[in-house]
Design a binder for these strands. Sequence first.
DNA 1: TGACTTTCGTTTCATATGAAACATCATTCC
DNA 2: GGAATGATGTTTCATATGAAACGAAAGTCA
Lengths: 177, 177
Amino acid sequence: MFHMKRKSTVADTPPPAAAGEAAPFRLEAFLPYRLSVTANRMSRAFARAYAERFGLSIPEWRVMAVLGTGGPLTAAAIVERTAMDKVKVSRAVAALEAKGFVLRRPHPEDRRSALLELAEPGVAVFEAIVPLARALEAELTAVLGPEDRAQLAQLLARLDAHLSGLGDLSLDAGDPG
Amino acid sequence: MFHMKRKSTVADTPPPAAAGEAAPFRLEAFLPYRLSVTANRMSRAFARAYAERFGLSIPEWRVMAVLGTGGPLTAAAIVERTAMDKVKVSRAVAALEAKGFVLRRPHPEDRRSALLELAEPGVAVFEAIVPLARALEAELTAVLGPEDRAQLAQLLARLDAHLSGLGDLSLDAGDPG
DNA sequence: TGACTTTCGTTTCATATGAAACATCATTCC
DNA sequence: GGAATGATGTTTCATATGAAACGAAAGTCA
């Protein structure tokens, strides 16, 4: 391992990499950091919109989103489809039940479980949210052209598939959430 | 648990939209959702690695990262460069001080503030982390070629710039972590 | 049948988060 | 100078998170 020859200072521009000298680390160019920052900014914008207009948290919205499209689902199925952990799903479902947006029916084949579906008010809210969500998505990604958006989606999908497959390495990409 | 007739994948083709019928909403194709899921998976992998090997949280790592490259910085400067909120930075700095990784010097021109820099043990840890972080980044993004990574970085940068510029609308930008 | 193990979903508990209040110092305006 | 205002960083407090423990119900095996 090589040592840096000089101390870097605050306003330093990254020096051209001399032979044998490693490029300085730049957080702004570090992909996990960039991904996290951008994702969080976007999540915040959505969280605010959902909360202000419908009183829903993001976990609650995700549950609504899958129940609104798919038929009755068990909590486990919701966990799979929303990529959230079971505790989060459990709490989101409880909150949605309390709000009258979700109904719980006994599961015919397993008394530990239940079938969840949107109640009437839940359907109405779901149908009101979807256009808003699409519009907000469009607004927040307005700098990207359609091809860019597709590109981004495709890159994320590939990354995602890769990350999911890494669960048992020494590096451990666990996926509880 | 029921078996599905066929595996649904992220890349599932949407059914052809009939005339006058809106395409059903699909969470898996919703960009904010995809972004969040992928970012969280990646963050988790890193958080685990940093915690296991160096006992650092992600906020702590971010502070080390900017102090390791830039010279002494005030807390406010760290806030800017790490995209974290000031509470998080305050706590991360306090933790790093307690660990002996960061030193705090009085700010010569403002007694409210302080100049922060890596202590010797902090420098050592920083120099040990950087190669690991790079290797882990490489491993986690191994499905992407160099051009793909550049593409992704570029798309995220554009998105980010756009989101930052939206701060004064009904939407807001910030960073939870 | 009667242990056992596993799975489903909830609850508990310890930690992480950030908005708002705060103490401190700096700056502005009179 | 000396109030009023603004900036810096910390602390408080209420909420969000998830790992682990849990009760209940299946499933497995003899």
